[in-house]
Design a protein around this nucleic acid. Structure first.
Length: 799
RNA sequence: GGGCAAGUGGUGGAAUGGCAUACACGACAGACUUAAAAUCUGUUGGCCGCAAGGUCGUGAGGGUCCGACUCCCUCCUUGCCCACCA
């Protein structure tokens, strides 16, 4: 007999909705648990990645509910963003209509999976009731100098008339029209995330329950590096060029210095020199290349001599000043000291242009003395040579000594540099949060007063996708009076990057209807922090970093009293088919909806958890799905053959299973939890089960297959929902074994096994072991050197 | 170039210092059936052996240990992230 999953799943989904089974409200009597999965972009269809992410979350949520926690498990939609604009153009509709249609479709699919969300808390970032608070947050940041406008160089597509993110530049061309991408200086809005760099780095130490990998990625992205800023005086010009290095131990080998082509001193250094016109040509050529092209090219490093010389302050040696494309204005001081003997890039550049070299660190592995014989730079550790008073010191020690000595002499300064840049949030797009700023010819940049929020997106913007931001073409949006002096003014037409929206949504879920602020402090104080956050590894840097930044900002505003939003983080692996990521372009997509139709949501949930642990990649397998379906049917059939009283051996298996499954659920090891449930089921098939044992099996299965379990629960005569049944507890008495199987090894190889009473003494055990007949060929006539005993488990005899 | 993760049967995976391959898929066999499907019950790492049993075996090589899939070192392969980062 097969269970009728179509009927059962529909029935229970309706029942849960009707009884608001997942409704969460403050309850001081219970311990709270805030479980959150990264909310989706509403494309209209869920894919297997969503199914996996949200199934993991739902099982955890239902398990915590059964354990007696007050669980908050909300869902919403990250609804702003470019795909909606493209789809609207393609389908000749408005982003607004298209997005809302997609949200409804997506919600239906999520409901069909049986996920236990408190839908009363649903939010969409494209609703003005949400993005009003984006604008409020922006203004708070603006008041504190954390939101500011500055000119910068960005990728620009001349045909689409818009800026492009680095990710949107493919092989130097626009991802949409393939035009060659240019560099352009534009005034853009930035958030000063760099003000929080120390805290963002230090607080990583608190995040013990985050994956090591994510912590590393965040730390690398913030990129703290300690070194020394060294001042090179330019001969004649009377100027100073600061350079930054992490290898101050190599300073005596700095035989030239190199500036980025954009360096502000370059023009002065080349002026009147014979090299001037060549240098200008080179700078012009580099400036036309986009950043992306410049960074990705693995062609040889190009550069020119400026005609000027600078003085190495440690030995007063004159060194030539060059310009090269491999030095970046964005990092450090935009200038480097070049040590060709101990830096591979400098080595290649020096070889190419015939620049001088000098060894300053040696060990036995490196060529001694002869720089001409050097085939590549020596970047390892060794002893200082050619380094004045520091000769003979290990370079690791010299690094510290030289830095201190330079500071004393005033020729260098110990400094910390960071890789983290401020966050550019301006987008010349329509479908995003309008930046609440007005430009007044009299007063300059004027923030929109709080009482005028939200600045709503005009619904009737002309929509073609070309020729810059559509907002600029809506007169009644752009033309406003200055809030300060009433002079005719112009509204900002850029919108915010969508990462802004998702940087605080977890706080909004605590009080989604709140009218007087982004969130209600009382609610946030109860529900936050998020106890368990689940999502894809692709958000390991940006989204998580921005969310941590916003949380620290709210703390500084005094609105919350914690500085990290997510206590535990789980990053789930991707779903693959035939070893490749599922994607439209590969044409290897498996549609969850079709699988639900064929086997039901419970089977899909079961399979996706059983096939692999949550963190690793999961190989899709249609036959595995059938296997999972078979297992549910196998459990279903148990109800036909229930006995009065369970076999004692079955009760032992049951209690062991309860212990194992509880531990596995807590540790998110769903695949082995399911394996244990299968073993219990197999044991039931051997001895037959009583109603009590069967009930507990169903409860343990309920987080994974909720519809299935509810139905069986009802069939067994229960009136209340299974999710109010409480989690079963393992009886410690049933876990104690009377007899143990002891493994006997000789020289580390298993040679025999014996069964003994659990409470046997060590001496007695030794006696029995040595009398074991199976061991005779292995130990007879050989002196026993050692007798190792691992209690309850194993002995090893060394002969 | 840097960082991280992974590598175990035909397949997905289990075991994180103590019986390698739990659980499942697949395959093979048996029961039921006129037959098939479904279901139930077995067998299923390689080699030697009729068997009892032996022996090899967790990417490769070395090390620590009574004992290593597990810890350490070197290397190979694959995947992900970052990257002319000074």
């Amino acid at each position: 007999m097969h269970y009728d999953f179509k009927k059962i799943e529909k029935k229970w989904q309706n029942a849960w909705q009707k009884h608001k089974a997942a409704r969460a409200r403050i309850n001081p009597a219970k311990e709270k648990f805030y479980l959150l999965e990264m909310f989706p972009y509403p494309s209209g269809k869920i894919h297997m990645g969503h199914v996996r992410n949200y199934t993991i979350g739902d099982v955890a949520s239902r398990f915590k509910t059964l354990e007696g926690y007050n669980v908050l498990h909300p869902m919403g939609f990250d609804a702003f963003g470019q795909p909606a604009e493209n789809a609207a153009i393609k389908n000749k509709t408005k982003p607004d209509n298209w997005t809302h249609k997609c949200i409804r479709q997506m919600q239906d699919e999520l409901k069909k999976m049986g996920f236990s969300y408190d839908w009363e808390r649903e939010i969409s970032t494209c609703d003005s009731s949400y993005y009003k608070w984006n604008q409020w947050i922006f203004l708070k940041m603006f008041e504190r100098g954390l939101a500011y406008k500055k000119a910068s160089t960005v990728n620009w597509c001349p045909s689409c008339q818009t800026t492009l993110a680095n990710e949107e530049v493919i092989d130097g061309g626009c991802w949409r029209c393939h035009s060659k991408v240019e560099q352009k200086d534009l005034e853009q809005w930035y958030l000063k995330i760099t003000d929080y760099k120390e805290r963002l780095l230090e607080d990583l130490e608190q995040l013990n329950d985050w994956p090591e990998r994510v912590l590393n990625m965040q730390a690398n992205w913030i990129g703290k590096s300690q070194g020394v800023e060294i001042y090179f005086k330019v001969k004649a010009a009377g100027k100073v060029i600061p350079v930054f290095t992490t290898r101050v131990d190599t300073i005596f080998g700095a035989t030239y210095i190199v500036l980025a082509p954009e360096h502000p001193l370059v023009k002065e250094l080349i002026k009147g020199k014979s090299q001037e016109s060549g240098a200008l040509k080179f700078i012009e050529k580099v400036s036309r290349e986009s950043k992306v092209v410049r960074a990705s090219s693995d062609v040889k490093k190009e550069g020119v001599f400026t005609g000027s010389f600078a003085v190495n302050p440690v030995n007063n040696e004159e060194v030539p000043v060059w310009i090269a494309d491999y030095v970046l204005m964005e990092y450090g001081t935009g200038a480097i000291m070049a040590v060709p003997t101990h830096d591979q890039r400098d080595f290649l550049f020096a070889k190419e242009h015939g620049l001088p070299m000098r060894m300053v660190i040696q060990n036995t592995a490196a060529v001694e003395g002869n720089v001409e014989d050097l085939k590549e730079a020596f970047e390892g550790d060794g002893l200082q040579v050619n380094s004045g008073e520091f000769d003979g010191l290990p370079n690791v020690e010299a690094k510290v000594k030289i830095a201190e000595w330079m500071e004393e002499k005033g020729i260098g300064k110990i400094q910390t540099h960071w890789r983290l840049r401020d966050w550019l949030i301006s987008r010349q797009r329509y479908w995003g949060t309008p930046i609440p700023i007005i430009y007044c010819p009299e007063c300059g940049i004027v923030p929109v007063p709080h009482k005028d929020l939200p600045v709503e997106l005009p619904k009737d913007a002309p929509f073609t996708g070309e020729g810059g931001s559509p907002l600029g073409k809506v007169k009644k949006f752009v033309e406003v009076k200055c809030p300060k002096c009433r002079a005719p003014s112009r509204r900002e037409t850029d919108t915010m990057a969508t990462f802004f929206d998702s940087s605080w949504y977890f706080l909004r879920f605590c009080s989604p209807e709140f009218k007087n602020g982004p969130f209600e402090q009382k609610e946030a104080a109860y529900w936050m922090r998020v106890d368990q956050y689940i999502g894809g590894i692709e958000h390991a840097i940006l989204h998580l970093l921005y969310s941590r930044f916003f949380t620290k900002f709210f703390k500084d505003l005094g609105m919350i009293d914690f500085s990290e939003p997510f206590k535990r983080l789980l990053t789930q692996g991707m779903v693959l088919k035939e070893g490749e990521v599922m994607s439209k372009s590969r044409g290897n997509i498996v549609d969850p909806d079709i699988m639900i139709g064929k086997y039901g949501a419970d089977t899909l949930r079961l399979f996706i958890l059983f096939a692999a642990p949550p963190e690793t990649e999961l190989e899709w397998d249609d036959r595995g799905l059938e296997g999972s379906h078979k297992f549910l049917n196998r459990v279903w059939r148990i109800q036909d053959n229930l006995k009065e009283k369970a076999d004692p051996s079955l009760l032992r298996v049951l209690h062991k299973t309860i212990k194992k499954v509880s531990e596995d659920y807590r540790g998110f090891k769903f695949n082995t939890a399911i394996a244990s449930l299968m073993e219990l089921t197999n044991a039931i098939y051997q001895t037959g089960a009583d109603k009590e044992t069967f009930s507990r099996l169903i409860i343990m299965l309920s987080p994974i297959a909720p519809h299935f379990a509810e139905e069986l629960w009802k069939v067994l005569g229960n009136k209340e929902s299974i999710f109010k049944a409480g989690w079963p507890e393992a009886d410690p008495k049933m876990l104690v074994e009377d007899n143990l199987i002891i493994i006997i090894q000789v020289n580390g190889k298993v040679r025999s096994k014996i069964t003994v009473a659990a409470d046997i003494s060590e001496d007695k055990l030794k006696e029995i072991v040595l009398a074991d007949k199976g061991l005779i060929p292995w130990i007879q006539g050989k002196p026993i050197k050692k007798f190792i005993l691992v209690p309850q488990k194993l002995v090893n005899i060394v002969v």
